[in-house]
Design a protein around this nucleic acid. Structure first.
Lengths: 170, 170
DNA sequence: CTAAATACGTCAATAGTGCTGACATAAATT
DNA sequence: AATTTATGTCAGCACTATTGACGTATTTAG
């Protein structure tokens, strides 16, 4: 028997749904998300920002006054990862920090008018894409998609999502 | 009037669905995709591989014999981005190159047995997550999700998706 | 048959985003 | 007064992606 890498033979048959894996949804999810994020990516490029800036700006607009620690919890990144991105958004005037009223160690994060505008500009094409994807589909389809996506999220995080304003609860 | 960044005031109201944007699905899509990719990420770490390796290995298994140019077309990345990742997969014995039978400049890419096994190991938890998300949902829900995700993909790319084996057509 | 185009590989530099570890400061808590 | 907490920051590293440039083998066109 050939041991090691010397004589590995090519497998010529394609992996398919017959192998018991849901490749259809796995791949659709990949392609759909890629195109979904390409909309804001184009706009961000003009500002010299990336996806990380988008996410921070998004949640600061959706949860104004959240603290740095809360933002880290939502994004599930480290404070060092957040630091650069947040500093750039603050320096460029899209986000402001306000000292916490009760605990003065905390920095509450708020969007500026400029930050609010950009957040909306970034969200609009994504919302449009969703709207068009749901056009000519019954009301049940939207509910089905919502239920599915929520069920794809780790259970521990679903509660967090429900607390967003006008968000996934309703 | 304050000009510039000096006196920007914090906006304290939250952006919500009332602003005409579908934040519900935007955020669900974000959280769902993040958790969806976290499953294989854990396995990849043990191998010293990243998401880029996963994508290459995935499509080589789904479309055995595809050329480098075709792979670039599917992934929409540059050959320089692919190079390192592909070389590592080849050196580690997960993928083999075979000279094209008609055009000898081409390199057809095939998985090895080892590559096939890893691809399946990576796909399994993702497929399981999808299956559980669709549990206790009627057959219409799956179809609704499939239609939605496909409609989220840029129109030019939908044809490509339909050509995957046992894939998004049927 | 020679010249141009094509498929692929590779070197070098850069950007964006994430990580760990270490250390500092101010404010709250014990 | 000592400790913990919330935040900031410095330094270094990893992964993935980019552009630009150049080289080689092979195919195609003139």
């Amino acid at each position: 028997m050939p041991e090691g890498s010397a004589a590995a033979k090519p497998i010529r048959t394609a992996l398919s749904v017959d192998d018991g894996i849901d490749f259809t949804l796995i791949e659709l999810f990949f392609f759909a998300y890629r195109d979904f994020t390409s909309d804001p990516d184009q706009i961000l490029e003009e500002y010299g920002f990336g996806r990380a800036h988008h996410r921070v700006l998004h949640f600061v607009n959706r949860m104004p006054g959240l603290t740095v620690a809360e933002l880290l919890e939502v994004l599930k990144i480290t404070k060092q990862s957040l630091a650069r991105v947040l500093k750039q958004l603050i320096d460029a005037g899209y986000v402001i920090q306000v000292q916490g009223p009760k605990d003065r160690r905390q920095r509450e994060l708020y969007p500026t008018a400029k930050g609010r505008t950009l957040a909306l500009d970034l969200a609009r094409p994504q919302s449009r894409r969703i709207r068009e994807a749901l056009r000519e589909s019954g009301p049940g389809e939207r509910q089905a998609v919502e239920r599915f996506l929520k069920a794809m999220v780790n259970p521990e995080l679903r509660a967090q999502i429900d607390h967003l304003p006008g968000g996934a609860d309703r």
